[in-house]
């Protein structure tokens, strides 16, 4: 850090207040509590901002599982985290909205969706609607923040990016396209403080009526053959099943080989 740059910067622009909403993640294979991948990327994004004062906010139960996950975020080098205590099965949106409107951050960063519970990814939208702030989803990076306007890079498919400008205060969400979270270190994780704040509870009644089961494997869609003639029907029925060993082209000219590859790439639809 250059101290002089810091000083001159401090004169012209105030410190940017950033709040990151973090949740308890769940490892996809073992189901162990951890820092959620997308939320951790959000914290990483916040830490990469210049002159930002980052606060972490979580709403949920305070137990061993959530503590280990929260320490995962603290281990990224943050001194403290605010935990708005909410029982299991509560609707955390009102409590979070109140906490945010009290804290008045200029930028709120959240992960795209949670790794457990409903995981609908709706929370940032509900907060944005409630607070009346604009929301930008699928962020890859924040380029700069100047005069209350943030310049953002939004991730498009296949690694493409789109530049956006949004007026602050705003809520942004990040997903797997944002840069990966730094390592969570044991020392800062152990030292970091979790400030537990009580809050009013609103129950989420609808969830009780749902039935939740481990995800079933979805059937793969079969290729639909609309046959108009007997021969085509026969062809479709007699077609070699997929994955029955690869095709090997030996003694072909480079052009023929390239043609075969080209055909496969076209079929897969990845050439544009």
């Amino acid at each position: 850090m250059q101290p002089d740059a810091h000083e001159t910067g401090a004169n012209t622009e105030a410190v940017l207040e950033v709040a990151v909403l973090v949740s308890v993640g769940r490892h996809p294979l073992t189901g162990r509590a951890r820092r959620a991948d997308q939320d951790a990327r959000g914290v990483e994004l916040a830490k990469s901002l210049d002159r930002a004062h980052v606060t972490l906010l979580h709403a949920g139960e305070f137990d061993a599982e959530s503590e280990s996950a929260m320490r995962g975020y603290l281990g990224m080098g943050l001194p403290a985290l605010t935990l708005v205590e909410q029982p299991h099965g509560a609707d955390v949106v009102p409590a979070l909205a109140r906490a945010l409107s009290d804290a008045q951050p200029q930028l709120v960063i959240a992960g795209g969706r949670a790794e457990q519970g409903e995981g609908s990814g709706l929370l940032p939208y509900l907060l944005a609607e409630r607070l009346g702030w604009p929301l930008v989803s699928g962020l890859a990076d924040v380029e700069k923040v100047e005069h209350g306007v943030a310049t953002l890079l939004q991730a498009l498919p296949r690694g493409q990016r789109r530049r956006l400008q949004v007026r602050l205060p705003a809520i942004v969400t990040v997903d797997a396209a944002a840069s990966a979270a730094r390592q969570s270190a044991f020392g800062p994780a152990r030292r970091g403080e979790i400030e537990v704040e009580p809050a009013a509870v609103a129950w989420d009644e609808a969830q009780e009526e749902w039935s939740v089961s481990p995800a079933r494997k979805r059937p793969k869609r079969l290729k639909i053959v609309k046959a108009t003639s007997a021969r085509e029907r026969f062809k479709a029925a007699a077609a070699k099943a997929e994955g029955g060993g690869g095709q090997v082209l030996t003694d072909v000219t480079p052009e023929q080989g390239a043609e075969a590859i080209f055909k496969l790439l076209k079929e897969e639809g990845i050439l544009r």
């Binding site: 490892h27 294979l29 073992t30 162990r32 951890r34 281990g75 990224m76 080098g77 730094r182 390592q183 969570s184 270190a185 044991f186 020392g187 800062p188």
Partner: peptide, 19 residues
């Protein structure tokens, strides 16, 4: 433990070991 600065794939390996 303090910097959280294991180079290369170190961070990933440690995360895997934990999870």
């Amino acid at each position: 433990l303090e910097h959280g600065d294991t180079p290369g794939k170190g961070a990933e390996v440690l995360d895997n070991l934990i999870a």
